[in-house]
Amino acid sequence: MTSMESTEQREIRQDRKNIIEIRDLKKIYHLGKTTVEALRGVDLSVAEGEFTVVLGPSGSGKTTLLNIIGCLDRATSGRYLLDGVDVSNRDFNDLAEVRNYKIGFIFQNFNLIPVLNVIENIEFPCLVREKHEDRAKLRERVRSVCAEVGLERFIHHKPDELSGGQRQRVAIARALITQPRLVLADEPTANLDSKTSDQILELMLNLNREHATTFLFATHDPRVMELARRTVRIKDGTVVPD
């Protein structure tokens, strides 16, 4: 289809349900009198359980695409189905709900809430839900996710008491606690040293394998590209065909 992948991979993907299905997506920005066409008709499908990297130079529209996929922004035109549901024309609060229930985010700068400790940061997305589960039960789940990402000993630490790698683990745990259909990672290893990057990538691969969580990366990190099972290239606002 629209990306570099092995024949075998493609076959696997075609058997699975699509988590992301984008058709003719356009995004136009109006900056004063000039109009910038950030996305010029993108078509993209990502199947359940995929570990995909989106590549592209800065200004290619990569971040715009990721923002729209992450329901942080809306396309000017086109169709976007997330987990089979059309989210193209939802209002702000609906999109917030979609992000909360279906998408997990991992950022380059970790983006933790400084006044909350590890455990609170992780449970935060669940606690802002209108009806959230029993807090004791939630704590139990948080602890098990902490164990999975190797944070058991730091659960009461504040973000500023943690190393970069540990912070990114918290971010991963926070992304996973809601059991999302899709995890979006924007340059997740950019602020980490190579050893920590490897550990974080390994962790994400394991999670992808064990929970079949769909991962979509935006990165320049060659190690991520090596590990990715599929690479999508973006140039000038369109997906470059294979």
Partner: peptide
């Protein structure tokens, strides 16, 4: 501002 962005990204509502 970025903290607000973070909270918005995890699905917090404007009202919250």
């Amino acid at each position: 501002t970025r903290e607000i962005g973070t909270m918005l990204s995890v699905g917090i509502k404007r009202r919250q």
